[in-house]
Design a binder for these strands. Structure first.
Lengths: 218, 218
DNA sequence: TCAAAACTAGAATTATAATTCTAGTTATAA
DNA sequence: TTATAACTAGAATTATAATTCTAGTTTTGA
């Protein structure tokens, strides 16, 4: 659920500034209903008329706030990304990071990723699709991936105790690339045999990552 | 390059039967130029007018052959899939399959996959995007994945010599899911750090798969 | 209280491309 | 050779949704 505060703080271009409470409330409704609609339709299928109907408003009001449909979805993406950015910051500075062993740390990471993706299934899928034509539109999501790797990489290296060789770092980065790839693919085409819903998914992903990073582990 | 013979053999619904040589030649041109155009544009961006201009024909002729733009891309996909199906059949019945050890076999698989994907980059990306809205449109590609796993799985099990446990099979299938996911993600958003062009990509993928399947290997 | 600014409503407009239609042109086969 | 079917050309049509526009309505601040 995106709220007024987040929207105010993450000032996004393409969202025209509001002066009155009623329009701030409208933006909140549009954002959340937009997110909901993206669970069913993708970017093209998301109709502004339909969105406005669900928000009990009209296209006139919509365009009083947003440049365009593109700007609307960009805004949505920016907010969700900003939300996740904060979540990651909190997560990686909490004292609940499993520092016991690498297997636990990686399972914690994959589980967290799966949970977030399930929550934002619709928007992520729409972003993936849009990325096919407009590569730039994936940039904020890519950034999110980068951030998580920056947080996790030192933790992983530390757990391994060995010297951080370029080769190790390469394997760690590729492990994350595998994780994101596998999860994105589930979101987009759900190829099976494992889905985002399967409890085995984060476990298997963590295992694959663990063994790629540290071959000595079972 | 798709040729007349393949088109004749893989009879596709949505492609109206041809009676004359000139229209068979036209279909060949449309298919190959379509494939070329999909390297630059995706499904929506592919304009029928533009395609016809490149083929030195007109939309009238196009619609004499194809139901619709959808049918056109479906046909393209069917042909490429049929082509790959044959390629896989040949590949897996050749005597050049590396049967020495699992690492070699997996590298052979990942390299083959990367080469094919590079060749059909455009169509695969378009199919991935289309899949976001119409899940059915990925079905033929999914089938290709299934086929490859059916071919490879027994070979892998054989190399491991142990009893084929359900757990082993699960890990093998997940290894392939990882491979397809990582590669599809490269095609769609090219997240880095590794790309389809990097020589390290098939190698790292094979390593990840190997270690997931057989933890005793380095 | 009241004028100006901000906002909302929703019909009308616009843009874009796919698709259709009809009049020619070319190939086929009796 | 010629009637017919197959095909091609490309202008006109259609469909769909985003976007604009203008006339009300509500909020704000003096």
């Amino acid at each position: 659920m995106l709220d007024e505060q987040l929207i105010a703080e993450a000032k996004v271009p393409g969202l025209k500034p509001t002066q009155q409470q009623r329009s701030r409330a409208l933006v909140v409704r549009l954002m959340n209903e937009g997110l909901a609609l993206l669970e069913e339709h993708d970017f093209d299928g998301l109709s502004i008329e339909a969105l406005c109907a669900r928000c009990e408003t009209t296209v006139g009001s919509f365009y009083a706030r947003f440049e365009s449909k593109d700007a609307f979805v960009d805004t949505l993406q920016r907010l969700v990304v900003e939300d996740r950015r904060r979540e990651l910051a909190a997560r990686y500075s909490s004292d609940r990071i499993p520092r016991g062993d690498l297997a636990q740390l990686l399972t914690w990471i994959t589980k967290g990723g799966v949970i977030w993706l399930k929550r934002h299934h619709g928007l992520v899928r729409a972003s993936l699709r849009r990325a096919g034509s407009d590569l730039g539109s994936w940039t904020p999501m890519r950034e999110l991936g980068r951030i998580q790797v920056e947080y996790a990489l030192p933790l992983i290296v530390e757990l391994l105790e060995g010297r951080p060789t370029p080769d190790l770092e390469q394997r760690i980065r590729f492990a994350f690339q595998i994780m994101y790839g596998t999860l994105n693919n589930m979101i987009l085409i759900d190829p099976g045999p494992f889905t985002l819903q399967d409890a085995a998914t984060p476990r298997l992903l963590a295992t694959a990552m663990l063994r790629l990073i540290d071959p000595t582990k079972p």
